[in-house]
Amino acid sequence: MKLGIKTYFLAALAIGSGLIVLLGYFVDFPLLADLRATFLFWTVVLASFLLLVGAFNLLRTHLRKLKGPQPAGIYSLVLLLSFFATLIALSIEQFGLFGASGWSLWTMRYIVNPVESSLMAVLAVVLVYSLARLLQRRLDTFSVIFLATTVFVLIGAATFPDLEIPALRAARDWLVQVPAVAGGRGILLGVGLGAVAAGLRVLMGADRPYGG
């Protein structure tokens, strides 16, 4: 594949800035530390600006959905109306017009939080349903162990009136604190190695998610 001059320029920029940030973390050298801090500050500023870009991307996607023959167009309309209503309300509050105050808090407390809590409640039901279907979908030793462990930990965590079984609680605590933590750390070790490899591939210029 033929690479253009733009690709080389972007790769050099990404590799150079990446190396400076990485070395600034490991090597105690004032110039590197200053450059690293400056780059990270720019990243924070850019990330804040990108939030705005993300909001526009969301709006554009839903405007297009509204124009097209999509069956879920009504949801896009609700999203757009909610977006502009929130924007207007928060602008009024921000500029102190009409004595408005606490509107943003009200929006979070009475609209966003209840809707997100409802989704979490749906998630709880979905997870129980998925667990029930697990053996039907994939009947093997690990699935049985997964299901049995989940049920055992749930029973061990439950409080039954006038029924306390110390051995059950101790077994549950051991399961959660020893094998589960060991397994979790093993998985995280693999994830950590994978993350370092992914970062190094970008530093090598082998992966170029920024284009080219």
């Binding site: 979905v126 997870l127 998925s130 667990l131 697990l134 997964f146 093993g186 998985i187 693999g190 490899a197």
Partner: peptide
Amino acid sequence: YAAAQEPLIGEELFA
């Protein structure tokens, strides 16, 4: 692991 048809466990995603 419980919900997906084909889950990738551990570092399988990174491979």
